[in-house]
Amino acid sequence: MAEASSLSPPTLRRLEVAAALKRHREALELTTAEVLDATGFSASKLSRIETGNRRVQIPDLVRLCELYGLDNDEQERLTKLVGEARRTTRKPVVDNPDYTDLELAASAIDDYKTTIITGLLQTPDYTVALFRRFQPNIPNDLMEKVINDRRRRQEDIFRRPHPPRLNFVMDEAAIRRVVGGRSTMRGQLEHLARLSSEGPLTLQVIPFSVGAHPGMDGLFTIMSFDEAIRDRVYVDGLLPSTFLVAMEDLQRYRSLFGQLQELSLNPEESERLIGSVARAL
């Protein structure tokens, strides 16, 4: 069992229930229309249950378990998971709580950013400078909570006995753009260099010399799991952030991430470039 399983974040448990219910329906070769007729659910309700976009209610779970002819052991297992999915946990002030739950449970994370350093690799000073630019009027107490949330996220990932496989790719613009002044940016780059040489991760930089490349207009994170849930892509940007779980989307983004890795400097070359930019500040 993966290390992530013992962490049991509510989002993961909710998605595990969703995947199990869909798997049981498909094993019986029941169509969604047949389930709707038998349960009286609306199409949107069943869809949200099977995608994990809503927590299933116990009466609805019982109805589906009976319809699918599940034995007592499986019903008890799913009921327990539903209870865990309802568990209240600390919600981050800014970061998407579903994202942070899944990040904590992932067995592999492939992350690509264009012009900023990704959250898991940020120093506190860099985070403050970034948020002060995006939200100039953010209160000091809220800013402190953001910093604490980021620090906990980083500790939860990097201090796990068995951290996930971590691959980070960023455009050279992310290390060249000075955020928060020269001292802050130098500290951020020195932090990246230390993580690259000592941390449980792979960090690569796409140099300006490659010119145009297929990742210039987007940023995304691919999360893979050893759990009985589907891998997914988190796409961020100006439009509302979203998770993609369709197989064709996963294949497209995995192919794109592979292309970006091939265009990047290797980890040793990337570390040298980061160090060089830091020393020039």
Rank of each mutant, 00 (worst) to 15 (best):
R153F: 10
N53S: 08
E103D: 10
V178K: 12
P161K: 09
E29Y: 09
E84F: 02
V62P: 00
A27V: 08
T31F: 08
V62Y: 07
V128Y: 01
L256P: 04
E155A: 12
A228F: 12
G181L: 13
P200T: 04
F208I: 00
V17K: 00
P10Y: 01
V277W: 10
E84L: 07
A43P: 05
R54K: 02
P139M: 05
P207Q: 03
V146N: 02
V205N: 06
N137I: 01
E16A: 15
G187Q: 14
I222V: 13
P92R: 14
L15V: 03
L195R: 10
L189M: 03
R77Y: 11
I138G: 07
Q75R: 15
V94C: 06
S209H: 14
V277S: 07
D37G: 09
I147V: 15
G215I: 01
E248R: 13
V62G: 02
L121F: 09
P214W: 09
D95E: 15
V245Q: 14
G258V: 10
Q204H: 13
A129E: 01
G83T: 06
F168N: 05
L142V: 15
L21C: 09
V128A: 11
P161I: 04
D110A: 12
R254S: 15
P164E: 08
I109P: 01
D231C: 11
A228L: 14
R232F: 07
L256N: 03
P10M: 04
L273P: 11
P9E: 07
Q251E: 14
L46C: 06
A193M: 04
L195K: 06
R176P: 10
A33G: 07
V245A: 14
V56G: 06
R25Q: 10
D71L: 07
P9D: 06
D217Y: 08
R54N: 13
R252L: 08
L195N: 09
L120W: 07
P59S: 03
E227N: 07
L64F: 10
P164I: 05
R230K: 11
Q75Y: 04
A173Y: 04
A174Q: 05
H213K: 06
R165P: 00
V179T: 11
Q75P: 00
L250P: 01
